Computed example of a mutant assay.
Amino acid sequence: MSKQWASTDGAFKRQVSSFRETISVSHPIYKPAKNRYWLYVSLACPWAHRTLITRALKGLTSVIGVTVVHWHLDEKGWRMLQPDSTAAADRKNDYFYTLSGGIKDNDSDHSHPAGTIKNDSQRMFIDGTFDPNHQFSRLSELYLKSNPDYSARFTVPVLWDTETETIVNNESADIIRILNSGVFDDFVDDKKFNSVNLVPKELESKIDEFNSWVYDNINNGVYKSGFAENPAVYEKEVTNVFNHLDKVEQVLKEKYESLERKFDGNTKDILNHYFTVGEQLSEADVRLYTTIIRFDPVYVQHFKCNFTTIRDGYPHIHLWLRNLYWNNPAFRATTNFDHIKLHYTRSHTRINLLGITPLGPKPDIRSL
């Protein structure tokens, strides 16, 4: 895609989200209900990935459905696959009420090398899924149905209301707070998920503070580095990314040492409490994870964030990452390295003109 992502000074500017409604029992329009709301996500996008993880952690897979867009972002934006028959569309419960939104787990299946996969590949439930609500082929159609005058980029995630047929929210930070808020708890069959709270009151200020510098300097920092079109801007931004990764490493190092003393070196107990803020899984972990899991596979080479890798340069971040991935299915099942690698390397042709997808690193993530 030839679209220019940087402004005239060569610096990347992130688009501001346009739809910012919420869902609550007191809202005049958007009230909680089962099967009323639908998520449109990309498995490649870290912002959309946040919403999938939160949906899984809160047990909302049977409450809020998901459509996964194709990993390739072309000149017209994100697209959805079209089912071969209406029967496939009618079976949406079989495919969409899953942790991964219906995508088959093919991360370990490399029988189709990346070089043989075309950008227009139409492998249903591998490259993407379909839209059972309107049978739209483009995400843009949802935006234009919501607002015919919409003229900005068509971004994921999208939280869609099937009743009013409009976008409720397209800001990931808002969506994960909505999903975590408990407004859907009554519709969750397994009540163990009701106790999950990613933003407990006693940690909220610390979570917000952690999120604020992680977002600007790491989550968005890798993009400011990768999309920079001025050498001076790039060098400033990539240095800033690693300065703040150093900061996260120090936070987790101190956390690990404290837990090691508390639990007399018992690894299982340490890992059960090894999180960025406090000693429980929180929104801070979810928001950081979606950047760190992409770091070695794509950001090192594609965004030129190559001072070092997470696996070789940050032992405590690496342990924290593997603990989340291997010990929590909400993280593992929603992480698709094929979508991640193919999207970045095929969609950003200003960065990777030939569209060749690197095979490494091997493995995508190391064992715990």
Rank of each mutant, 00 (worst) to 15 (best):
C45R: 01
S18N: 10
S18P: 01
H27S: 09
I23H: 03
L43K: 12
G59N: 03
S62G: 15
T22K: 10
T61W: 04
Y30L: 04
V63Q: 10
L52G: 04
I53Y: 00
L39V: 07
E21G: 00
P32G: 12
H49K: 11
L57H: 04
H27P: 09
T54G: 03
L57W: 00
I23C: 02
S42R: 01
T67L: 11
Y30I: 09
S18I: 12
A44K: 00
R20L: 14
V25M: 08
K34Y: 07
S26I: 11
W38C: 06
Q15C: 13
K31N: 12
G59F: 10
T54K: 01
A48N: 04
T67A: 15
T61C: 14
Y37P: 01
Y37D: 02
R55F: 02
I23A: 04
Y40R: 08
V41E: 09
R55Y: 02
H27Q: 10
I23D: 03
S17C: 09
A44S: 15
Y37T: 03
S17M: 09
T54S: 03
T54L: 06
I29Y: 05
S62W: 06
Y30C: 12
S18F: 08
S24N: 06
F19D: 00
S62V: 07
G59P: 01
R20V: 12
V25E: 11
S17H: 06
A48T: 01
A33V: 11
V16E: 11
A48M: 03
A56Q: 01
T51V: 13
P28R: 07
V66C: 14
Y37E: 03
G65H: 07
R50D: 00
Q15P: 04
S24P: 09
A56N: 07
T51N: 08
P46T: 11
T22L: 09
H27F: 08
K34S: 15
C45M: 06
T51I: 02
I29T: 15
L60F: 11
A48R: 03
P28D: 06
I64Y: 00
S24C: 09
K58N: 12
I29P: 08
L52D: 00
A56W: 00
T61M: 13
P46C: 08
S26P: 05
Y40I: 15
L52V: 07
S26F: 10
T61Q: 15
L60S: 13
T54W: 03
L60N: 09
C45Q: 03
S42H: 06
P32H: 11
I23M: 04
K31L: 13
R36A: 04
K31Y: 12
V16T: 14
S17R: 13
